[in-house]
Design a protein around this nucleic acid. Sequence first.
RNA 1: GGGGUGGUAGUUAAGUUGGUUAUAACGCCGGCCUGUCACGCCGGAGGCCGCGGGUUCGAGUCCCGUCCACCCCGCCA
Length: 592
Amino acid sequence: MNENKRSHRCGELRDSDIGKDVTLMGWVHTQRNLGGCIFIDLRDRDGVTQIVFDPDIAGAALGLAAEVRGEWVVGIKGKVRSRGKNANTRISTGAIEVAATELEILARAKPVPFPIENEVNASEETRLKYRFLDLRREKLQKNFILRHKFNQVVRRTLDANGFLEVETPFLIKSTPEGARDYVVPSRVHQGKFFALPQSPQLFKQLLMVAGYDRYFQITRCFRDEDLRAERQPEFTQVDLEMSFVSPEDVQNVVEGVLANIWKELLDVTLPTPFERISYDDSMNRFGVDAPDMRFGLELKDLSSVVKGCGFKVFVDTVANGGVVKAVNLSGSGEWSRKDLEELEEVVKPYGAKGLAWLKIKEDQTLQGPIAKFFTPDDQANLKQALSLKVGDTAVFVADRLKVANAALGNLRKHVAKKRALVAKDQFRFVWVVDFPLFDYDEEAKRYSAAHHPFTSPKPEHADKMLSDPASVKAQAYDIVLNGIEIGGGSIRIHDQALQSRMFEAIGIGDVEAHAKFGYLLDAFQFGAPPHGGLALGVDRIMMLICGTDSIRDVIAFPKTQKQTDLMLEAPAAIDDAQLTELAIKLIEAKKA
RNA sequence: GGGGUGGUAGUUAAGUUGGUUAUAACGCCGGCCUGUCACGCCGGAGGCCGCGGGUUCGAGUCCCGUCCACCCCGCCA
């Protein structure tokens, strides 16, 4: 075994290989010493093969095999033979075993802190500290094999569509809008800082100006915001941009990419084109801008129905400009008082002050704490508006529109999950289109860009940008899968005058705009083609493909919720010499 | 920044109204065992009960603070 060469991988041998002399190398998954003979399950990322050390043929290797422990790295030579009726049907190589004649210990291993098995027993903390061991688990290896394939399909498909892969810089300039930037000090220019890109947005637009029509990149983006189960401080996007296109052109390309991915990774044929829903419809019917349309439980606005009823909370809310929205929970089973109290807890984090409910009794009358406030006429109207039948339960939130939508929109997702209303392996893609161009920032008392400030308004709305910003729709679109936003994009502004008007609308003056984005505005003076694009969130898509709830299962070396790396113990202090070189002095440095 | 859940042996967990020597499983170490595949059987070692205070005759258990992990809200153009 001097050459360190394998003849096969550990998932490869079949009964057609019986009789062959083979060399396998890998990790000792388990060792079973029966006294006379010893079995070793040898593992690599390809699979597991049973090695048997038979005293009749193993010779000196038998004694060595007795010493071997879990996760040692070994090489073995031997002959493939049938396991006959001892075959193991649970592994791909189960029909055969290798009768070893030689064993070489390539690396010993300390006892591992947790077993290398698919069923995760160890805590997240332990797993992250020993990430290189966690990554040995078959489940994670499968995820990263799929992620590799994802990248291959993206590159192949976009290449076939005439896209060029171009790399853009990581050390760039901090921008005022958007998320918090990660910042890198400059040694050469003391007191000045680079920022890491939140996305390659401006570069891809400059590439369009440069004539590199149809650009793409699979690239890292950095945002210094707090984490969630589906959010990491550095994450990966498939970023793409095209010139001389409509939103539909971009959407077609993206549908083609996603269809190829689902076909090749999951053998699922996606029906195209995907469904489309307007932002307004999505908010009205589902309460959120990323609707999960795999199940019903749609929201209904009952403001006009209840504005004259006897329930003061509803009446006052509507009179003060709020809304009363409701969801008929029919089709999700019986709801006890205790269940409904739990739902109230679901809704509270979104600012809802309470969750009213009504049930329809056998005799068609309403039951519930608020039932007495409704006249027979009101009751009839409610029943009709919510399509309430005997046995149904409806829940109500009365609040500002934003709160009512968020509360009930997330409640319906919660109910669907809890009551298992969604069939497994269902993929419902939908385009959400006609987003508003602006958001009103209630704290700053001004409008800000809903998507980003380079998003083009719908042409017919462009003249209302300053006079009636709230009504302006953007040529912006998100792609949503099963209620999760997996990508978004827009047609961009390519006209310098329009771009200036956009900055004006969001309160960025000429001077500031030129200071921050001068290079883009300059570029627009030298022949900018109409262009648009989109970015896909690779990590979130991989979560859905791999069927996991944690983004850490699809990122090889992820960070904790507090943005640390438990394996590297990063971030870490740097020494004084480095600080001096950067001309940085720490103030009130929190002791690590 | 706020809310919630958790932290006890290498790992995962149990630990009663505060009360003698803190349990179990897996793993680890030693012994036996020739068809196992979660091998089996016998024996053994292994503890800063996250950390720091406090209450108490006495704290894994009660109180205060703090650190870490996870989930959620805010935040994420």
